[in-house]
Computed example of a mutant assay.
Amino acid sequence: MAQPDDMLDDEHYPAYTMGRAAEITGASQDFLRRLEKANLFIAYRSAGGHRRYSRHQLRLAARAREMVGQGVALEAACRIIILEDQLQEALQQNPNHQRPRQAEAA
């Protein structure tokens, strides 16, 4: 069984309430709900039905807020972030598919 300290070290553990997530990311609570509606992530739910967010989700939300602030449409920002996140995960899982090295490009 996971210990409390292990859960807090887990970037996918839903440790943050909606209010705290909004405060950390600098986004409104409505913006966080819109990110979920745009399928950037699905907020975890507490036993009482309240949204809870992980550090990973907070990073995605902060990136979306930044992009939207630069004029990118919300849906487009979410799609870009999803693709970037999938690419990063794939590169971490398979180091043989890293981007070309500088030496190979020369």
Rank of each mutant, 00 (worst) to 15 (best):
A76F: 00
D6T: 13
H97R: 14
N96I: 10
S46W: 07
L8N: 10
R55H: 10
A38Q: 07
I81N: 10
I82R: 13
L8V: 15
R79T: 13
L32T: 09
A77K: 05
A38I: 04
A15I: 07
P14A: 06
A64H: 03
H50Y: 06
K37R: 08
I81F: 08
E75T: 12
I42M: 06
N96L: 14
R33T: 01
E89G: 10
Y53P: 02
D6H: 12
A64W: 05
I80L: 13
E89A: 15
A106Y: 12
H50A: 08
Y13K: 07
G69K: 03
D85L: 04
A90R: 15
C78H: 08
A77R: 05
E75Q: 09
T17F: 04
G49N: 11
T25C: 04
G48A: 15
G48R: 15
I24G: 01
L32F: 07
Q92S: 12
G26C: 01
H50S: 08
N94H: 14
M7T: 11
R52N: 07
R51S: 08
R55F: 05
G26H: 03
H50G: 00
L91M: 15
V68T: 15
I24Q: 03
A47M: 08
D9E: 14
L87Q: 15
Q57W: 01
Q88K: 15
N39L: 01
V68I: 12
A21R: 04
F31Q: 11
R33I: 01
G48Y: 07
D10F: 08
N94I: 11
A15R: 14
M67G: 01
S46D: 13
M1G: 15
G26I: 01
M67V: 00
R34D: 13
E66M: 03
A61R: 04
I81E: 12
D9T: 12
Q98W: 11
E66C: 00
Q70V: 00
A62R: 10
V68P: 02
I42P: 00
G48T: 14
P95C: 11
R52K: 13
G48M: 09
R55A: 14
A103T: 06
A22G: 02
M1Q: 12
Q92E: 14
G69W: 04
R65V: 03
A22E: 03
R63D: 09
E11V: 12
S28K: 03
E84V: 12
A21D: 05
Q98V: 10
A21C: 05
A43H: 08
Q29S: 10
R20M: 05
E66R: 05
A2G: 02
F41E: 05
R55G: 06
A73C: 01
E36H: 00
A103I: 06
A62P: 00
T17K: 01
E104A: 11
A106P: 05
G26S: 02
K37H: 06
E11F: 06
R63E: 13
Y13Q: 10
Q88R: 15
L60R: 14
A61E: 01
A76Y: 00
Q57P: 05
A76N: 09
Q92T: 09
Q98T: 13
E23V: 03
M18W: 00
A64T: 12
Q92F: 03
A22T: 06
P4S: 10
E66D: 10
R20E: 14
Y13D: 03
R59P: 00
E75L: 06
R51M: 02
D9Y: 08
D6W: 08
L35T: 07
E89C: 06
I24P: 02
R55C: 01
F31W: 04
S28F: 02
S46G: 09
I42A: 11
H12C: 08
